[in-house]
Computed example of a mutant assay.
Amino acid sequence: MPTLTERLEACYTGVVHDVMRAMGLKAFTLPADLRPIMPERTLAGPVFTILGKVDVSADPHETLLAWTGLLSKAPAGSIWVSQPNDDRVAHMGELSAETLKNKGVRGCVVDGYARDVNFLLKIGFQTWCRGHTPRDIVGYWLPVATEVEIEIGDVTIAPGDYLVGDRDGLIRVPAALAEEIVTKSEAAIATENLVRKAILEGVDPQEAYLRYGKF
């Protein structure tokens, strides 16, 4: 039987968005300028959250100890989701991605920059970020906490929540409603397939909408 992660990964964000909107949920779509390095690949799974801060007085050794400690904490099957509170340096790179991928981490979402993008593409580690820079965290940035609530744009992401992202964007799926949202999304996809079939058979779009209640 497919896991909830696998089921969510088989959905697409447009239908998940519409289901959540119909449920009356708000503030669940992450900023549109967060983009994936592999837009053709869907990313879904439970989150491992990281909160950090800039500390320009930090010792280089201290920053690397803290960073490698973060890598050790990330659980298999999760998505690394970071609010670094920084827009200057990269918060994901080759060796970190290699480590996380080998641990079974599904990918990462960084509200900031990444580097070594050619290597990330080569190893197939899906990375969502705002852009790229060769600058790194050494002597500049430290983690504050893991597995805490973080905010990216107007979206609050809590431990246990899920994310799903595809070429259209990223959506936060709250833990308490994840099963219901996935089930409703699967049903909506089945209905959309009927609408699509009707359209391809020449049915008027308004008639198709009235017949199936979806468009």
Score class of each variant (00 low, 15 high):
Arg211Asp: 10
Asn102Ile: 08
Asp111His: 06
Thr133Asp: 00
Phe119Asn: 11
Arg172Pro: 03
Pro84His: 08
Glu192Cys: 13
Arg196Ala: 12
Ala188Gly: 00
Gly45Cys: 01
Thr146Phe: 04
Glu147Gly: 06
Arg196Ser: 05
Gly124Ala: 01
Thr13Gln: 04
Ile181Asp: 06
Ile199Asn: 01
Asp136Cys: 06
Gly202Pro: 00
Leu210Trp: 07
Pro84Arg: 08
Arg115Lys: 15
Leu177Gly: 00
Gln206Trp: 09
Leu95Phe: 12
Thr63Ala: 13
Thr63Pro: 14
Val138Glu: 15
Ala198Gly: 07
Val54Ile: 14
Leu30Val: 10
Glu149Gln: 12
Ser185Ile: 03
Leu4Ser: 05
Cys129Leu: 02
Ile50Lys: 03
Asp204Val: 13
Ala32Arg: 14
Gly69Asp: 15
Ala74Phe: 02
Trp141Pro: 11
Glu179Trp: 02
Gly14Asp: 05
Leu70Asn: 06
Ser57Phe: 00
Ile181Pro: 06
Gly77Val: 10
Ile171Met: 05
Ala32Cys: 04
Leu65Met: 10
Leu65Phe: 08
Val109Leu: 11
Ala208Arg: 11
Val117His: 11
Cys11Ser: 11
Ser72Phe: 11
Lys214Met: 07
Asp86Thr: 02
Ser72Cys: 11
Pro143Arg: 08
Gly124Leu: 01
Gly69Arg: 15
Ala175Asn: 14
Val89Asn: 05
Phe125Thr: 02
Arg211Glu: 12
Ala97Ser: 14
Ala22Asn: 03
Val47Phe: 15
Gly24His: 01
Trp80Pro: 00
Val117Met: 15
Leu100Lys: 09
